[in-house]
Design a protein around this nucleic acid. Structure first.
Lengths: 116, 116
DNA sequence: TATTCATTCAACCTTTTGGTTGAATAATAC
DNA sequence: GTATTATTCAACCAAAAGGTTGAATGAATA
């Protein structure tokens, strides 16, 4: 009896780990076998294999089996969802500047009152 | 002895929980007291308070104390970081289409070979 | 066929997470 | 001054996360 876990949940959670973000970055260079992917990481191959599975679960990585070798490929589509969700808040990014703008406007109004 | 946790780690992790994303969405309407913020959530006030603390830790929420009331405010700046990281991969979003393009080009080349 | 290689599976461990309840704190209202 | 209200703190709990090691599986190679 699983409760629903959205794509966005999975994508954000997958990307919350720095090792997994490094994996994503690494795969932009092209396909890699699990072993080769794991090379620069200071952890066991098994640990990397687990991270890959998390990324797969989030749809961020695709696996192509060729004999005993598994080639991993970046599938960035879920990042688009992340970007879409995030960009909803674009107008809040400069909140402080907006607040400053409002403050300046307010001050302007006050100045005007003073001149009546 | 904490190991380093990046801003991006904190932001992604904070946003990986659907309740916290709802909180962020809710706060776009303006400041809210903790109690009011918690109203629509089917969990204890304490649970919401904890979520707020996670969002604060990631810099996504700011707290303004006024007497016994705490007013919470959205600080979307960390979302900009998330968007920046994510947009690095924009050109991979349409990977499948690119792959199709490459395939079609390849096929075109093959056709050309056949005509030599 | 026996061995090596690429990878996962399984079990285990520690820390973190997301929730609960009950008590503490501190400001407001009666 | 005594309730009441707003919020956190603290302890607890179950489940998940991130890592380890060792065994299993299945292909390739000698």
């Amino acid at each position: 009896m699983n409760i629903a876990v959205s794509n966005l949940d999975l994508a954000f959670a997958a990307l919350a780990d720095p090792t997994r973000r490094r994996i994503v970055a690494r795969l932009t260079r092209g396909e890699l076998r699990v072993t080769d992917l794991a090379l620069p990481f200071a952890m066991s191959l098994n640990a990397v294999s687990k991270h890959v599975k998390v990324l797969e679960g989030a749809g961020l990585v695709r696996r192509r089996r060729e004999g005993r070798e598994h080639y991993l490929q970046l599938r960035a589509a879920p990042l688009r969802e992340v970007a879409r969700w995030t960009s909803q808040y674009e107008r809040f990014w400069n909140q402080r500047l907006d607040a400053l703008g409002a403050f300046l406007e307010q001050q302007q109004e006050n100045d005007d009152e003073g001149s009546q």
